[in-house]
Nucleic acid binder design. Sequence first.
DNA 1: ATTATATATTCCAATTATGGCATATATAGT
DNA 2: ACTATATATGCCATAATTGGAATATATAAT
Lengths: 97, 97
Amino acid sequence: MKSNLYEKKAQIFKALSNPVRLEIIDFLANGEKCVCEIVEKLNYEQPHISKSLIKLKEAGLIKDRKDGLNVYYSLKICCMGDFFNCLNKILESDLKS
Amino acid sequence: MKSNLYEKKAQIFKALSNPVRLEIIDFLANGEKCVCEIVEKLNYEQPHISKSLIKLKEAGLIKDRKDGLNVYYSLKICCMGDFFNCLNKILESDLKS
DNA sequence: ATTATATATTCCAATTATGGCATATATAGT
DNA sequence: ACTATATATGCCATAATTGGAATATATAAT
């Protein structure tokens, strides 16, 4: 169904449409991190970070791995680099115009 | 400011986080269209389309050009193709897993 | 078994998005 | 000037998102 595809795409963009979640993705670009590391790095309550991670995971952007008490999250997307390079181009061209 | 950059990026993603707006972008990929063409193509009220277009424009994703009574909108981003190819990869890998 | 620690879930108030409807504005033609 | 047409704006009810605070769950260590 075509409309479903647009819905699915919209969901991905929605997951990315929040500064905290974008910052998480940026941090995960350095490699797999556990929730506590992300909480420590960003300045938000742990429940908020947890919810953000779950939203990113539901969108298919990150994956998790449990190890003892810790849950490690990492990027699931190979092309995230291109993705964000494009975004930077948009932002640059926006500043010029 | 770093936080501002995340905010700005989030705004772009927010503009893309809606099926109607994604469908508009898809349609504009075929080239410049006036509002009336977009209204005709998609099945939404004209005011809603107008508001969607303005949101996309504010995010810096499309631009407009006035000609008589008509306003023509077109994609402002060169790398939209890569952008959406990446998205499709995400969706495919999501279906597999 | 008890305690400590990491993460997830629930609940909530405040804000923001959605999309329809009515209306306003702007331009073109007569 | 008047009318028609294209687009934008304002208003509104409903729904979704945000992020904090409290609490629950799960695992590890003693």
